[in-house]
Structures are given as structure tokens and as C-alpha cells.
């Protein structure tokens, strides 16, 4: 069959794209496969991609030896709790900045973003000491507070860019139609901004789930989320590749799935409206 030029280039590009994306995805795939191997097969010098004895032993081992579900639950509470709390604080602020603009709005936004640039180490010791004095060390509440504050600027920014896309006149129309500000927000703004709010929530859940500075420093056994749990594999358990893999898979799969489902919204939100 004769092939035209565009079909030929499509084949080349497809092969190239699959090859490169396969390489990028490979470490994750390899982790997934290793989690089903025995320890011996995992470190074998002639590793096999699929031809090995599949086993679920590693998963049951990880679950038996460590309070995985505790850590999982901690991750859920911290990431979802801080994201919801952040929304409650950020939505009114974003409304103000998007719809009641003043000369200061731009500076305020920039300032908020700049707090995100403050290196955590600049406030590490006081936060650590305050946490110690208020008995917040190694508590979920303490981490929810910290993660809310850490991600608040990003939430305000994202919501601001989404709100800005809602035509001003629609909100004014609702005001003419007899809405109070609260009714305006609930009946008109929130339904219109729902996709944006949802993606803000999702992105912040992901960021909080994966945050690995404060979670490592401010937690020990009780409130440690999955990031800290995995860090405990750094040595010497890390040499048990199959178990490390099983634990890793259990730590990343929930967020991987969530992220795949919301990838379109994520990209737009994260770029601060720079990319439509």
C-alpha cells in the first residue's frame, strides 16, 4: 500500500512520542512491576519485565509491618482538610480582588505570591518552637494549619484567575435583580466558577499530599502522612526493593489517579492564567 508523506511522518512522530513518554513513565511502571516481584527477583541482574512469578506478598508484608492505613488516613485528612479550609478563606479574598479591583489589588496579589517564595527555612525554627510550645508537633491539626497557610497564596491566585473570566456584567445583573452580596456569590458566582473551584481544590489536594518539607519536619509516628512514611524506607529497608515498591505504589496511586482525571484543569490553574 502506498503511503503518503503525512502518514509517514505521523508514524515517525508517534514512535518518537511513545518512546520518549515510555522512558519518562518507566520508573513508575518499573516500581509497579517490582512491587509484584519477590525480593530476589527484584534485585536480579537479569531483570524481567513481565515474566516473573507475580506475588502480592509485598503488599501484605507492608500492611502487616507498618500502620499503612494510619499514614494513609493522615495524608487524606491533611491534604483534604487543608484544601477545604483554604477554599473557605481564599474564595472571599479572590472575589474581592477579582470583582472589586482597586489600585492596590495588583500589589496585594504580588505580595501574596511573594509569601510563597519565602523559604520555609526562614521560619523553620519559630514554627518548630511554636508547635512544640502549643503541643502541635506530630498532630494532624498542626499540619492542616501549616498546609493551609503554605498553599493559601496559590489558591487565591488560581481562584482569582478563574473568577476574572466570569463577566462582570453577570454579577451586576444579579445585583440589579435583587441579590444581596451573599446571594450573588451563592446563586451566580459559585455555580459559574465551579469548574475552577474544583480544579483549585484538586491541585491543592495534590500539592498537600506530596508536600515533603513540613510533613517530614513536624511529624513523627502519630501524624506522619505517607510522605514521611515512605521516607522511613530510605535505609536500610530501602534495599528491599519489592517492599519499597509496594509501599511506594500505595502512596502514589490515589493521587496519580486523581491527577490523571483532572489534568486539563490542573494545567490551566497552575499556570496562573498565563496559558489558556
Amino acid at each position: 500500500m502506498a503511503m503518503n508523506n503525512s502518514n509517514k511522518s505521523k508514524i515517525i512522530y508517534t514512535a518518537l512520542a511513545w518512546g520518549i513518554s515510555g522512558m519518562i513513565f518507566f520508573p513508575i511502571l518499573w516500581t509497579l512491576l517490582t512491587s509484584f516481584k519477590t525480593e530476589a527477583e527484584a534485585i536480579s541482574a537479569n531483570p524481567s519485565l513481565f515474566m516473573f512469578d507475580w506475588t502480592l506478598e509485598n503488599y501484605s508484608d507492608v500492611l502487616a509491618r507498618s500502620p499503612y492505613f494510619n499514614h494513609f488516613w493522615n495524608s487524606v485528612v491533611i491534604s483534604i482538610g487543608s484544601s477545604l479550609l483554604g477554599l473557605v478563606i481564599a474564595i472571599p479574598a479572590a472575589w474581592s480582588m477579582a470583582f472589586v479591583q482597586t489600585k492596590r489589588t495588583k500589589h496585594l496579589l504580588m505580595w501574596m505570591l511573594s509569601t510563597k517564595m519565602l523559604p520555609p527555612v526562614g521560619v523553620l525554627i519559630p514554627i518548630y518552637l511554636m508547635f512544640r510550645d502549643f503541643s502541635l508537633l506530630d498532630t494532624k491539626l498542626g499540619l492542616v494549619i501549616v498546609m493551609t497557610l503554605v498553599n493559601l497564596p496559590i489558591m487565591v491566585w488560581m481562584l482569582y484567575t478563574y473568577f476574572r473570566e466570569i463577566p462582570h456584567e453577570i454579577l451586576e445583573a444579579s445585583r440589579m435583580d435583587g441579590c444581596s452580596i451573599a446571594e450573588e456569590i451563592f446563586h451566580v458566582l459559585l455555580p459559574l466558577a465551579l469548574p475552577g473551584i474544583a480544579s483549585t481544590l484538586l491541585l491543592n489536594v495534590i500539592l498537600a499530599w506530596n508536600e515533603a518539607f513540613w510533613t517530614l519536619i513536624l511529624t513523627a509516628a502519630n501524624a506522619a502522612p505517607l510522605t514521611a512514611f515512605i521516607a522511613s524506607y530510605s535505609s536500610p529497608e530501602g534495599l528491599f526493593y519489592a517492599k519499597l515498591s509496594a509501599a511506594s505504589v500505595m502512596a502514589i496511586v490515589p493521587i496519580l489517579i486523581l491527577g490523571w482525571f483532572s489534568q486539563k484543569q490542573l494545567v490551566r490553574g497552575l499556570s496562573f492564567g498565563a496559558v489558556k
Binding site: S21, I24, T31, S234, G238, S248, I252, G259
Partner: peptide, 22 residues
Amino acid sequence: RIMVLAPFFVMPTVSALVWKNM
């Protein structure tokens, strides 16, 4: 696209350990 995006969702401790050890 899904394959390319995946590493972004992997927590830093996991990716560091997987790369380091495996």
C-alpha cells in the same frame, strides 16, 4: 500525555527513593 504527566503526581520521597535504590 497521561504517561508524560505521571511523574508530577509522584511524591518527592517516593521518586527519590525509587531512583536512588532501584
